[in-house]
Amino acid sequence: MADDLLAAVRGESASLPAVTSAVLVVIDGLGALGLRAHAGHARSLTAGMGKRDTAITVFPSTTAAALTSILTGAWPGEHGLVGYRVLDPARGVLVNQLSGWETDGLDPATWQMSETVFERAAASGHPAFAVGLPVYAHSGFTRATLRGAEFHGAAAAAERVAAAYDLAARAPGSFVYCYLPEVDKAGHKHGIASAEWVAALEDVDAALARPVPAGVGVLVTSDHGMVDVPAERQVILEQDHLDGIRHLGGEPRMVHAYLEEDADADAVMLRWRGDLEGLADVATRDEVVRSGLLGPSVSPTAAARVGDLVAVARGNRAIYDGTAADQRGRAMVGQHGGLTAEERQVPLLRLGALRR
C-alpha cells in the first residue's frame, strides 16, 4: 500500500495514477463496516465510496502489528511485532510493543526488523515526512516505525491534515504520512456505538474535507476496525484455567499464552480448547505459523515471540486474566485484534489526484 503510493510519486505504480507528491492518511481504529454504518456522519469520506474501496488488514488486527505492516510493507512474521504484548525470549519477560519501548527496554533500531517506506523513499531521493501528535515525536514506537521520516507534530486532526497537505505541496516528490488516532481512542473508551465515537468520526471527516493541493494524491486507510465488547461477553480465566501458564500476552481479543518450562504442552492445549470451546479458537504456535496468518514467511525471531498457545476470541468476546491484580482493562469497550470482518476490513479511499 505505502510502497504503491510511493511508486505513484515516481510514476511507476501499476494501480495508481502518477502524482507530484503523496499523502498516506491512517485513521486508527476505523473499520470499513463501521464507517459504512455511520456514513451520515462521514460524508466526505464516504462520498463515492464503492465496494472495492476496502482492504484487509493483517493478523493480529492490532495497532502495533498492523500499523508497522502499513509503514514497512512487511507482514508481522517479518517485522516481528506479532501482538500488543509479547514475550521477549532473551529475557523471559513480557514487553509492550506499542507504549513500552522505553520502560521495557526495547531497541527501536533492532526489535522492529524491517526497513520502512520512509527509508526507501529517502534512499531514492524523495523527501519523507510524518505528521502526528507532538507527544509521539520521540517515542520508541515512532523511532521503530517512522525511521527515515522527518516528524512534524500538530495537536488537532485538522491541523495534522493541513500540515501534511502543506508539506506535500511544498516538497514535490515527497511522501507524507498523517496519523489520526482520535477514532481509536474514542472507540476504546466509549465503544463504536457511542456519541463520543461518532463525534470523533465527524471531527476526522471534517479534517479530511479540506481541498487537496493540485497534483497531490491522498490515500486514506486504517490499521484495523473494532467490535464493542459488553461486560457480559467477557471471558474470565481463573487460576484453574491458568495452570501451566507462565505469562498471558497479546490482548483480550487475541491472547498469547506462554507456558511454564515444565508444563505438559499437549495437556494444557487440550484443556484450553475444552475450556474455551465456542468462545475462542485455540491454536499452537506451530499451527499459527503454518496457517499463514502472520504472513507467508515467519522468521525464527518473530516466531519465538508468538505464544505457545494463541487464543482468538469469537464474535464480540474478550478474554481476561481474572487473577491479575489490575483489572482496569476490563472497562475498555471497543476492542480489536481478532479475525472478524469488523476488525480486519478497512477503508482504502482515494482523494485528490488519486480520486477515481
Rank of each mutant, 00 (worst) to 15 (best):
L45N: 06
L94C: 03
A341Y: 08
H152F: 13
A144V: 06
D104R: 00
A158H: 10
A32Y: 01
R317V: 03
Y136E: 14
D184W: 01
F151H: 14
T46C: 15
D264I: 13
K51L: 09
V86M: 08
Y165S: 08
G132D: 15
S15Q: 01
M254C: 15
V235Y: 05
A171V: 00
V235Q: 05
D3L: 11
V289I: 14
L67A: 14
V333I: 14
S15V: 11
L16I: 03
H247A: 05
D266V: 12
I192K: 01
G322S: 01
R170C: 06
A154D: 12
G73S: 14
Y84Q: 05
A64F: 09
T301S: 10
A195H: 05
E78T: 15
A263P: 10
D308A: 08
V26F: 00
R160S: 14
P213R: 06
G244I: 12
P17R: 03
T340V: 08
T20P: 00
A206L: 13
P134G: 13
L33W: 02
A302S: 14
S194Q: 05
G140L: 06
W75I: 00
A137F: 06
P172R: 09
R143E: 11
G132S: 15
G77E: 11
D4A: 12
G29P: 04
E287S: 07
V95I: 13
A265K: 10
D243M: 11
G322N: 03
F141N: 03
V212P: 10
G92Y: 02
T46E: 04
T63V: 08
V58M: 03
L5P: 06
T46M: 13
N316K: 02
H336T: 10
A121E: 11
F151S: 09
L219V: 15
R210S: 12
R91C: 01
A55K: 01
V95K: 02
P89A: 10
W111T: 14
A158S: 14
V19E: 04
G83F: 12
L270W: 05
F141T: 03
V86C: 13
S297G: 03
W197E: 04
P89K: 06
Y136V: 09
E260I: 12
L33I: 08
R10W: 08
G329Q: 04
G292F: 06
A156Q: 11
L351N: 03
A324P: 00
L33P: 00
P60M: 09
F141G: 09
E78Y: 03
D53M: 10
V288A: 05
D240R: 04
L94Q: 03
I192F: 06
V25F: 00
R273V: 07
A168V: 04
T116S: 15
A199E: 07
E119G: 12
G83R: 06
R305E: 10
R120Q: 14
L24C: 00
L270R: 11
T103R: 12
E260V: 15
